[in-house]
Design a protein around this nucleic acid. Structure first.
Length: 937
RNA sequence: GCUGAAGUGGUGGAAUUGGUAGACACGUUGGACUUAAAAUCCAAUGUCCAUUAGGACGUACGGGUUCAAGUCCCGUCUUCAGUACCA
């Protein structure tokens, strides 16, 4: 009876589907455990072997936790809105809804083949109206909220209106737009309704504002900061320009401090937390106001070094700073205009690439130093960024290298305010190891005290205040695209109004042309879309908003991260039509215990979902304020591309070993045409693409050898390996084990099919352990001591491995166990029964099959097992000979099932006995739980 | 530049806390079975010296601590990832 993996896997996948084996119950007395994968974009390319890596790891953990007796929620779904789905639809000329549906069907088929224990009854798709109804609902909640700094949480906007009506905004501490001015209750009540709405918009957590956005003409949309990499769009790599547009924004900046603090409470990797910290970019310092000589205007700067204020010998403004044109003197006007034009021409990317060149120009104007009242020349320089702080700096050349370089370049005086520090070569940026000098009342003080004193004195003058600045910007939330959630918004007299939640969802209309436009006009704005009759008709039923026939709807759509920011909660109660999830479900499942996904979402999805979670928590909609308790980043599986070498200008391809004799160019060819020793199947290549049809090949030793390159797995490099092929040839259990065996979960590693036979033959050996040629060979004889030792050793190691997420070493442990038990000719049920349990999280199909043959009625996947619970004494005594001062001595290692305290007590007793007997005591005893290392004389 | 991670055989990678470095697997070599191949099984496989017995050297490099270092400390080099004029 051979190991027929295809039949076994089909059988059990059908069984699991039919019996809904992995359906999680919302009402359970068991302890809950929530294991989640980052849900995929259903792109047209389908899954490659890299995608399931994280899913396999989470599946092992989910299955393990079920065995441990937990009620495990392990759902899956699709992030089906957003740019990738739409780009694919554009390429294939089909409607995104159709391609998305097809892609999802394909993904599902591929996922099912691998045997995941997903609870598909809870599947979510962000592009389903039943789902995005609640995305729209959350948007409305954000619109109806403001952030109260006094209580440090979001509150209902109606409460703010009440405050305004009774006392104005004088006592309100809120996160709001910069241009908010003070008003009294009387002022407020005298405002027109429209003016009041305008004012409230400055406080709402999602608001409409004319902002400088990152506009990508090729994609026809704006992009968030995290969607731009090195100055070009993350998707497609197209140029991005700055443009002013009226856009919806999310006031995530209100949560900057809490997003930072919350990192302390969650179990994520340090590098990921560090990325979020950098992205939030907290810096503590002071805001200082400089008066401009001859003008009423003031220049506000942010500095982290108010202690160095006496070293400020000039100021630098960003070329885009509002005051530049106003304060520039007539003599400098031309020079300044030329400079501004030149910098505007340089793209963001060029500016970033070229940080060495120092450029700037003097405005001719002077500010006044707040303390010395001396004139401070005002310069413009593109090293000052308009987007950070106030777009202006007080330049302290002695303490900041950039200011120093700028000053040297333009011969601006440098004043040394550090005692005994040489600044003739470079600035002195060290805060800690110096004393301030030449600084009036700051003389003789150290950094800390000087900072405090400077802020105190500035506050006394009314020219400064201690301030904490964050790099985190509010997130632009509008996209000029078709394939996204419509906003539940219409406009009356230019002011946004929320559509009543009774009318949700606002469904995305069917359109003929969904391509983006280069001008920024949203696709929904095209005339043909005004067949949006369903919506209009629906809205018209409500007399209050009958005027949607006259007043326009919001035509932008939401960005890709909208739906993914809260999907984890929808899984808890996926079919609920009345709430995004019921209070009971949310209370029971709380949040995700284990989240596995790629690190590329560090500053996007993972930050936004934390933000929405905190917001919904503030508004009483969630019991938790962090979405993901523990997070693991799986490393990427890379492809190994195959390269052929074409002799330039010819149709002749030369084998790798001969290529140095020619001038060649490299072409990538499909990796499936290559065998395990890098030899190319020339005939298949000729079939593969027309360009190779009549090609000649220069062989070495009768073979064409290709070059190899490890790079990202991608269709365009022809290096994609499809998991379906692996499942067909070796089985899903082999694929699962092999992906784990490849190396540590979190590490990037190239896919290489070479080693897969080792894992596959392990499964065959496992099968043979339970079978004697044609018959099932397990019996009820007593296990031997060796049998038990092998089993218990394996249980201990596998449990440790799973808890530590070192799945790769478990596979080795299984191999050793099977080899040992085979050598021991073990046929005892008492061993082979628990062994099947142990392997089942990794290789569930074969485990189920063996488990059934063992005569068990219940599915191995649903039963709880004591095997992971037992504590066992592992008897292993090793002796290591070591050399100590020229004499042979021994160390002894004992593995005991005792706590650390118990071991300590035992060692003390041992020492005492040894002393009483006059024997030698150990020189050193190292104790760790479960083990003693005992150095004896 | 800064931050983080890492550097171990021909290859992927093991080695909880300092305690037999190279588990396990791939590959390679030899053997068994077979008419043959595949499959399967067995043996060898860090490097060097030695016929053997055995010995020397070995975890990027240079130092240090220790009875004992892949692991800890100091310095250097390299690679990968993230980030970047953040005032």
């Amino acid at each position: 009876m051979s190991y027929d993996f295809n039949a076994i896997e089909d059988k059990w996948q059908a069984y699991w589907a039919k019996n809904e084996t992995f359906k999680a119950e919302n009402n359970s007395k068991k302890e809950k455990y929530y294991v989640l994968d980052m849900f995929p974009y259903p792109s047209g390319a389908g899954l490659h072997v890299g995608h399931p890596l994280g899913y396999i790891a989470s599946d092992i953990y989910a299955r393990y936790k079920r065995h441990k007796g937990f009620n495990v929620l392990h759902p899956q779904g699709y992030d089906s809105f957003g740019l990738p789905a739409e780009q694919y639809a554009i390429q294939t000329g089909q409607h995104p809804a159709i391609t998305t549906k097809e892609n999802i069907a394909r993904y599902r088929e591929q996922l099912d083949k691998i045997g995941f224990s997903f609870d598909w009854s809870r599947e979510v798709r962000t592009s389903n109206a039943a789902y995005y109804k609640w995305t729209q609902w959350i948007f409305i909640q954000l619109f109806n909220s403001w952030y109260d700094i006094a209580v440090n949480k979001a509150r209902d906007i109606s409460e703010l209106e009440t405050i305004f009506a009774s006392e104005g905004n004088i006592n309100v501490q809120a996160v709001c737009d910069d241009d908010v001015t003070q008003f009294s209750a009387k002022d407020w009540n005298e405002l027109s309704s429209k003016e009041q709405q305008k004012e409230l918009l400055k406080y709402r957590l999602t608001y409409l504002a004319e902002t400088e956005v990152n506009w990508c003409p090729q994609l026809g949309t704006v992009l968030a900061n995290d969607e731009i990499v090195n100055g070009v769009s993350e998707r497609g790599g197209y140029p991005v320009i700055r443009k002013k547009m009226t856009q919806w924004s999310m006031r995530i900046s209100a949560y900057a401090e809490r997003l930072l603090q919350g990192l302390e409470t969650i179990d994520w990797t340090d590098s990921l937390k560090e990325s979020q910290r950098n992205w939030i970019g907290k810096s503590v310092g002071a805001s200082v106001t400089f008066n401009v000589k001859g003008y009423e205007d003031k220049i506000e700067v942010f500095t982290t070094r108010p202690d160095t204020i006496f070293g400020a010998t000039f100021m630098t403004l960003a070329p885009e700073h509002d005051l530049v044109t106003k304060i520039t003197t007539p003599e400098q006007k031309e020079e300044v205009a030329i400079y501004i034009q030149a910098t505007a021409k340089r793209s963001e990317r060029e500016r970033m690439a070229d940080v060495k060149t120092i450029s700037g120009v003097f405005t001719g104007a002077y500010a006044e130093h707040p303390f010395t009242k001396e004139p401070v020349p005002i310069w413009i320089g593109d090293y000052v960024l308009a987007g950070y702080g106030t777009g202006a700096v007080m330049a302290v050349p002695c303490g900041d290298q950039r200011d120093y370089d700028f000053a040297k370049h333009f011969n601006i005086p440098i004043k040394n305010i550090f005692e005994g520090v040489d600044i003739s070569e470079e600035a002195f940026a060290d805060k800690e190891n110096t004393i301030i000098a030449n600084s009036d009342f700051l003389d003789g003080l150290k950094y800390k005290k000087a900072t405090k004193t400077a802020i105190y004195e500035l506050e006394k003058l009314g020219q400064g205040v201690g301030k904490t600045n964050y790099r985190l910007r509010d997130a632009v939330f509008s996209r000029q695209r078709y394939w996204g959630e419509p906003f539940p918004v219409y406009y009356v007299d230019g002011m946004p109004q929320m559509i009543d939640i009774a009318h949700l969802p606002i469904e995305l209309p069917e359109v003929e042309k969904y391509l983006p436009t280069e001008t920024g006009e949203p696709p929904l704005g095209r005339a043909d879309v005004w067949a949006w009759d369903t919506l209009k008709g629906e809205l018209a039923k409500n007399e209050d908003i009958d005027h949607v026939n006259i007043f326009p709807l919001e035509l932008n759509t939401m960005p890709g991260w909208a739906g993914s920011s809260w999907y984890l909660f929808r899984y808890m109660d996926a079919d609920n039509e009345n709430e995004f999830a019921s209070a009971e479900a949310l209370q029971y499942w709380q949040n995700v215990d284990l989240y596995i996904g790629g690190s590329e979402h560090a500053t996007g999805h993972l930050l936004y979902s934390r933000f929405w979670t905190k917001f919904l928590h503030d508004r009483g909609n969630l019991p938790v304020d962090e979405p993901f308790k523990k997070l693991i980043n799986q490393g990427m599986i890379l492809g190994t591309s195959a390269i052929v070498y074409r002799i330039s200008g010819s149709d002749t391809y030369v084998s790798k070993g001969l290529k140095d004799g020619y001038e060649t160019e490299e072409l990538r060819v499909d990796v499936s045409l290559i065998n395990s020793s890098d030899e190319l199947d020339v005939d298949s290549l000729k079939q593969w693409q027309p360009q190779f049809k009549d090609a000649d090949f220069k062989l070495e030793d009768g073979k064409y050898i290709v070059g190899r390159e490890v790079e990202k797995m991608s269709k365009r490099w022809f290096n994609v390996v499809n998991p379906d092929d692996i499942c067909n040839d070796f089985g899903a259990d082999t694929l699962r084990l092999y992906e784990m065996f490849l190396g540590p979960l979190e590490q990037a590693k190239p896919w290489n099919t070479a080693g897969i036979t080792g894992v596959h033959s392990f499964l065959k050996k496992l099968w043979k352990l339970y079978h004697n040629d044609e018959t099932f060979a397990v019996n009820d004889i007593e296990p031997t001591k060796d049998n038990l030792k092998t089993l218990h050793k394996t249980i201990k190691k596998v449990e440790e491995d799973i808890e530590n997420f070192s799945f790769n070493t478990s596979v080795s442990t299984f191999m050793i166990a099977v080899n040992e038990l085979t050598a021991q000719k073990c046929t005892s049920r008492a061993i082979l029964d628990p062994l099947a349990v142990l392997i089942s999280p990794y290789a569930p199909h074969i485990a189920e099959e063996l488990w059934e043959k063992l005569g068990n009625s219940e599915s191995i996947s649903t039963a709880n097992f004591p095997v992971f619970e037992e504590k066992h004494l592992v008897e292993s005594t090793k002796q290591y000979p070591i050399s100590f001062n020229g004499k042979m001595r021994f160390t002894m290692e004992l593995s005991l099932d005792l706590s650390k305290d118990e071991i300590e007590a035992a060692v003390m007793a041992h020492e005492k006995t040894q002393q009483q007997l006059g024997g030698r005591t150990p020189k050193k005893v190292i104790i760790v739980p479960g083990k003693i290392v005992n150095l004896v004389g």
